[in-house]
Design a protein around this nucleic acid. Sequence first.
DNA 1: AAAATACTTAACTGATTTTGTCAAGTATTT
DNA 2: AAATACTTGACAAAATCAGTTAAGTATTTT
Lengths: 152, 152
Amino acid sequence: MLRLSTKGQYGVRAMYEIARGYPERPVNIKEISERQDVSIHYLEQILNKLRRAGLIRSVKGPGGGYLLAKMPEEISISDILLELEGPLAITSCLNPEEGCVRVEICVTHLLWKALGRQIEDFLNTVTLGDLLQGKSFDDFTMLAKSGKGVVV
Amino acid sequence: MLRLSTKGQYGVRAMYEIARGYPERPVNIKEISERQDVSIHYLEQILNKLRRAGLIRSVKGPGGGYLLAKMPEEISISDILLELEGPLAITSCLNPEEGCVRVEICVTHLLWKALGRQIEDFLNTVTLGDLLQGKSFDDFTMLAKSGKGVVV
DNA sequence: AAAATACTTAACTGATTTTGTCAAGTATTT
DNA sequence: AAATACTTGACAAAATCAGTTAAGTATTTT
């Protein structure tokens, strides 16, 4: 139920590796591939999307690699997943690109919307900075409560 | 990102229709099919699973149909989705049936686990009773805070 | 200038999952 | 006995996922 594709998962793990080089050291694909056990070719596909989205930038030539475009604290998990998997859309009728014909009469519309809000609050709040710090996220509920980072 | 299959969605909507007949009036498949715009054959497949799981029971013969096996307040959205879509498993390594080889070194393990907890808390807390009442769920965050219904 | 390193892009494909349909029943009530 | 209703299992088209292959382009170091 509600599985995230490998693209999103690998994407977050790759971003973590790149974040480790912040702010100066470019991290190359080979290093990411080895540390996270994901094929170079597949990573190329993923990192391309993230670069076009402006989350990372690349440095060519020997000693080159990828660099975070912003501070780790400024890149949320949501930012990463949004690029790799598109907007959160628990049901197709909540997908902004599709729309729902039954909104008025649908008895579950508000349910899925509320669940989506719950998920987005979480993904917007957690950043690469938290990951680097090795946070356990046990305290997240409190963070969310305080209203921090809730963008939706 | 994170889409729920139609089986789960239709299942919740079907359960809502059945809940409307609670506690006495059996609701037949044709009625559910028409009101929720889902094919009878597909519904049979879905209702079968829910019956075997003990969430509903069936009454045969003319005037028959399906009945809720418990009070609407005792059936959570999680109960329904669990039967139709299996356990929540944002990543395959969090699926109890698959397991993770990298737990110790995986930098995102705790992240996905926390997200899963967030989702489960919500789905465990909301029941068919809430749906029948037409709740907006805007207040859910507070409900969750109070610790109600959080089973995990 | 050449070689090495590194990123870039697009097309393609096999496997899996999803979303149903079809067919042939069985059970119960009027 | 007829009508209504549920039950079960097999089957299949379509979409998505996960990843590979191939053929580049760009930059730096020597």
